[in-house]
Design a protein around this nucleic acid. Sequence first.
DNA 1: CCCTGATTCGC
DNA 2: GCGAATCAGG
Length: 208
Amino acid sequence: MSWSDERVETLKRMWGEGQSASQIAKELGGVTRNAVIGKVHRLGLSNRNGGAGSAGASAASEAPASETPKPAPKPAAKPSKPAAKSASAHPAKADPAPAPEEDKAEEAPAAPVTRIKPIIPAGQPLPPQPSTNEIDPKALAKVSEVEKKAKKLSLMELTSRTCKWPVGDPATDDFWFCGLPSQAGKPYCEAHVGVAFQPMSSRRDRRR
DNA sequence: CCCTGATTCGC
DNA sequence: GCGAATCAGG
Protein backbone atom coordinates (compact mmCIF):
# COMPACT_ATOMS: atom_id res chain seq x y z
CA MET A 1 0.00 0.00 0.00
CA SER A 2 1.34 3.35 -0.86
CA TRP A 3 0.29 6.79 0.07
CA SER A 4 -1.83 7.68 -2.85
CA ASP A 5 -3.19 11.14 -3.12
CA GLU A 6 -6.54 10.04 -1.88
CA ARG A 7 -5.18 8.19 1.04
CA VAL A 8 -3.09 11.14 2.03
CA GLU A 9 -6.13 13.29 1.78
CA THR A 10 -8.10 11.01 4.00
CA LEU A 11 -5.24 11.00 6.39
CA LYS A 12 -5.13 14.76 6.51
CA ARG A 13 -8.84 15.07 6.90
CA MET A 14 -9.15 12.58 9.67
CA TRP A 15 -6.10 13.83 11.46
CA GLY A 16 -7.57 17.27 11.23
CA GLU A 17 -10.75 15.98 12.72
CA GLY A 18 -8.81 14.83 15.66
CA GLN A 19 -9.08 11.17 14.89
CA SER A 20 -6.46 9.02 16.45
CA ALA A 21 -3.75 7.48 14.36
CA SER A 22 -5.05 4.01 14.97
CA GLN A 23 -8.49 5.01 13.83
CA ILE A 24 -7.11 6.49 10.70
CA ALA A 25 -5.03 3.42 10.07
CA LYS A 26 -8.05 1.26 10.51
CA GLU A 27 -10.02 3.38 8.13
CA LEU A 28 -7.36 3.40 5.49
CA GLY A 29 -6.57 -0.21 5.89
CA GLY A 30 -3.32 -1.82 5.00
CA VAL A 31 -1.40 0.39 7.28
CA THR A 32 -0.62 0.45 10.93
CA ARG A 33 -0.99 3.38 13.19
CA ASN A 34 2.77 3.69 13.12
CA ALA A 35 2.66 4.17 9.41
CA VAL A 36 0.04 6.81 9.86
CA ILE A 37 1.98 8.63 12.48
CA GLY A 38 5.12 8.38 10.45
CA LYS A 39 3.36 9.87 7.49
CA VAL A 40 1.82 12.55 9.58
CA HIS A 41 5.22 13.60 10.71
CA ARG A 42 6.68 13.51 7.28
CA LEU A 43 3.89 15.69 6.09
CA GLY A 44 4.80 18.08 8.78
CA LEU A 45 1.41 18.17 10.34
CA SER A 46 2.36 16.40 13.45
CA ASN A 47 1.06 19.26 15.41
CA ARG A 48 -2.55 20.08 15.08
CA ASN A 49 -1.65 23.43 13.56
CA GLY A 50 -1.42 22.57 9.97
CA GLY A 51 -4.46 24.41 8.97
CA ALA A 52 -4.10 28.06 8.31
CA GLY A 53 -1.37 28.03 5.77
CA SER A 54 0.84 30.56 7.43
CA ALA A 55 3.71 28.21 7.46
CA GLY A 56 6.99 29.36 8.61
CA ALA A 57 6.76 33.01 9.34
CA SER A 58 7.28 33.98 12.87
CA ALA A 59 7.21 31.23 15.32
CA ALA A 60 8.46 32.89 18.35
CA SER A 61 5.93 33.32 21.06
CA GLU A 62 2.57 31.76 21.19
CA ALA A 63 -0.43 33.76 22.11
CA PRO A 64 -1.44 33.01 25.64
CA ALA A 65 -5.03 33.01 24.63
CA SER A 66 -6.26 34.33 27.87
CA GLU A 67 -9.87 33.91 27.01
CA THR A 68 -11.54 32.03 24.29
CA PRO A 69 -14.13 34.13 22.58
CA LYS A 70 -16.91 31.76 23.05
CA PRO A 71 -20.30 33.41 22.87
CA ALA A 72 -21.89 30.11 23.55
CA PRO A 73 -24.22 30.60 26.47
CA LYS A 74 -24.32 28.00 29.08
CA PRO A 75 -27.61 26.22 29.01
CA ALA A 76 -27.87 25.56 32.65
CA ALA A 77 -27.18 21.94 32.52
CA LYS A 78 -28.75 19.57 34.91
CA PRO A 79 -25.89 17.84 36.52
CA SER A 80 -27.07 15.38 39.01
CA LYS A 81 -24.03 13.36 38.51
CA PRO A 82 -21.67 13.42 41.37
CA ALA A 83 -18.19 14.63 40.85
CA ALA A 84 -15.57 12.28 42.06
CA LYS A 85 -14.64 13.59 45.39
CA SER A 86 -11.52 12.80 47.26
CA ALA A 87 -11.43 9.09 47.26
CA SER A 88 -14.74 7.84 48.24
CA ALA A 89 -18.24 8.98 47.70
CA HIS A 90 -19.46 6.92 44.88
CA PRO A 91 -22.16 8.26 42.72
CA ALA A 92 -25.32 6.41 43.11
CA LYS A 93 -27.90 8.60 41.71
CA ALA A 94 -29.16 8.75 38.24
CA ASP A 95 -31.83 10.95 36.97
CA PRO A 96 -33.91 10.02 33.99
CA ALA A 97 -32.19 12.23 31.55
CA PRO A 98 -33.99 12.59 28.27
CA ALA A 99 -30.90 11.52 26.39
CA PRO A 100 -30.63 14.05 23.66
CA GLU A 101 -29.42 12.91 20.32
CA GLU A 102 -25.98 14.12 19.67
CA ASP A 103 -25.01 13.81 16.08
CA LYS A 104 -21.65 14.22 14.57
CA ALA A 105 -20.31 13.73 11.17
CA GLU A 106 -20.06 10.10 11.92
CA GLU A 107 -21.96 7.28 10.47
CA ALA A 108 -25.48 7.60 11.62
CA PRO A 109 -27.38 4.53 10.55
CA ALA A 110 -30.93 5.42 11.14
CA ALA A 111 -31.33 7.96 13.81
CA PRO A 112 -34.63 9.68 13.50
CA VAL A 113 -33.38 12.78 15.11
CA THR A 114 -36.33 14.94 15.55
CA ARG A 115 -34.87 17.08 18.22
CA ILE A 116 -31.83 18.99 17.30
CA LYS A 117 -29.66 20.37 19.94
CA PRO A 118 -28.53 23.83 19.00
CA ILE A 119 -25.58 24.06 21.24
CA ILE A 120 -23.81 26.31 18.85
CA PRO A 121 -25.57 29.58 18.33
CA ALA A 122 -23.86 31.14 15.35
CA GLY A 123 -24.51 29.16 12.23
CA GLN A 124 -20.99 29.32 11.00
CA PRO A 125 -18.98 26.53 9.49
CA LEU A 126 -17.77 25.39 12.80
CA PRO A 127 -14.99 23.11 11.72
CA PRO A 128 -13.28 20.74 14.03
CA GLN A 129 -12.98 23.21 16.78
CA PRO A 130 -10.67 21.90 19.41
CA SER A 131 -12.42 23.91 22.00
CA THR A 132 -10.37 24.48 25.03
CA ASN A 133 -12.83 22.68 27.17
CA GLU A 134 -16.41 23.13 28.10
CA ILE A 135 -17.03 19.64 29.06
CA ASP A 136 -20.03 20.19 31.21
CA PRO A 137 -22.83 20.42 28.69
CA LYS A 138 -21.23 18.13 26.26
CA ALA A 139 -20.01 15.63 28.74
CA LEU A 140 -23.41 15.40 30.29
CA ALA A 141 -25.03 15.00 26.95
CA LYS A 142 -22.59 12.29 26.15
CA VAL A 143 -23.31 10.56 29.39
CA SER A 144 -26.96 10.54 28.63
CA GLU A 145 -26.26 9.10 25.28
CA VAL A 146 -23.88 6.62 26.68
CA GLU A 147 -26.24 5.38 29.26
CA LYS A 148 -28.56 4.42 26.51
CA LYS A 149 -26.13 2.01 25.03
CA ALA A 150 -24.49 1.04 28.21
CA LYS A 151 -24.03 -2.62 28.52
CA LYS A 152 -25.64 -2.63 31.88
CA LEU A 153 -23.21 -4.95 33.44
CA SER A 154 -23.58 -6.42 36.82
CA LEU A 155 -20.92 -6.05 39.39
CA MET A 156 -19.37 -9.36 38.58
CA GLU A 157 -19.23 -8.69 34.91
CA LEU A 158 -16.95 -5.76 35.30
CA THR A 159 -13.44 -6.23 34.09
CA SER A 160 -10.32 -4.20 34.21
CA ARG A 161 -11.38 -2.22 31.23
CA THR A 162 -15.06 -1.76 31.56
CA CYS A 163 -16.55 1.44 32.75
CA LYS A 164 -17.50 1.10 36.34
CA TRP A 165 -19.83 4.00 36.50
CA PRO A 166 -22.88 3.00 38.46
CA VAL A 167 -26.25 3.89 37.10
CA GLY A 168 -29.52 3.70 38.83
CA ASP A 169 -30.41 3.01 42.37
CA PRO A 170 -28.55 0.15 43.97
CA ALA A 171 -31.57 -0.49 46.09
CA THR A 172 -33.69 -1.28 43.12
CA ASP A 173 -33.58 -3.72 40.31
CA ASP A 174 -32.73 -0.91 38.02
CA PHE A 175 -29.10 -0.77 38.85
CA TRP A 176 -26.20 -1.50 36.60
CA PHE A 177 -22.76 -0.41 35.61
CA CYS A 178 -22.02 1.38 32.42
CA GLY A 179 -19.74 -1.36 31.19
CA LEU A 180 -18.59 0.43 28.11
CA PRO A 181 -14.92 0.10 27.34
CA SER A 182 -12.79 2.31 29.43
CA GLN A 183 -9.67 3.41 27.78
CA ALA A 184 -6.57 3.87 29.75
CA GLY A 185 -6.18 2.87 33.30
CA LYS A 186 -9.23 4.90 34.03
CA PRO A 187 -12.11 3.23 35.76
CA TYR A 188 -14.65 4.90 33.57
CA CYS A 189 -15.34 5.25 29.92
CA GLU A 190 -14.51 8.43 28.18
CA ALA A 191 -17.88 9.98 28.74
CA HIS A 192 -18.00 9.22 32.41
CA VAL A 193 -14.45 10.28 32.94
CA GLY A 194 -15.63 13.57 31.58
CA VAL A 195 -18.17 14.07 34.27
CA ALA A 196 -16.25 12.39 36.99
CA PHE A 197 -13.37 14.72 36.68
CA GLN A 198 -14.75 18.18 36.69
CA PRO A 199 -12.25 20.91 36.10
CA MET A 200 -12.77 21.89 39.70
CA SER A 201 -14.14 25.08 38.47
CA SER A 202 -17.65 25.57 37.35
CA ARG A 203 -20.53 26.06 39.62
CA ARG A 204 -19.04 26.94 42.90
CA ASP A 205 -22.02 25.87 44.83
CA ARG A 206 -25.13 24.24 43.69
CA ARG A 207 -28.48 25.57 44.41
CA ARG A 208 -30.44 23.25 46.54
C1' DC B 1 -3.40 -3.45 31.02
C1' DC B 2 -5.05 -0.58 27.54
C1' DC B 3 -4.33 3.32 24.78
C1' DT B 4 -2.08 7.78 22.71
C1' DG B 5 1.47 10.24 19.71
C1' DA B 6 6.82 10.83 18.98
C1' DT B 7 11.13 9.27 17.52
C1' DT B 8 14.54 6.34 15.73
C1' DC B 9 16.67 3.88 12.21
C1' DG B 10 17.20 0.06 8.79
C1' DC B 11 15.25 -0.48 4.64
C1' DG C 1 9.83 8.02 1.68
C1' DC C 2 8.40 4.27 4.45
C1' DG C 3 7.06 1.99 8.77
C1' DA C 4 8.30 -1.50 12.65
C1' DA C 5 10.34 -1.03 16.82
C1' DT C 6 10.89 1.61 20.39
C1' DC C 7 10.16 5.39 23.44
C1' DA C 8 7.43 8.31 26.50
C1' DG C 9 3.29 9.59 28.45
C1' DG C 10 -1.87 8.80 30.23
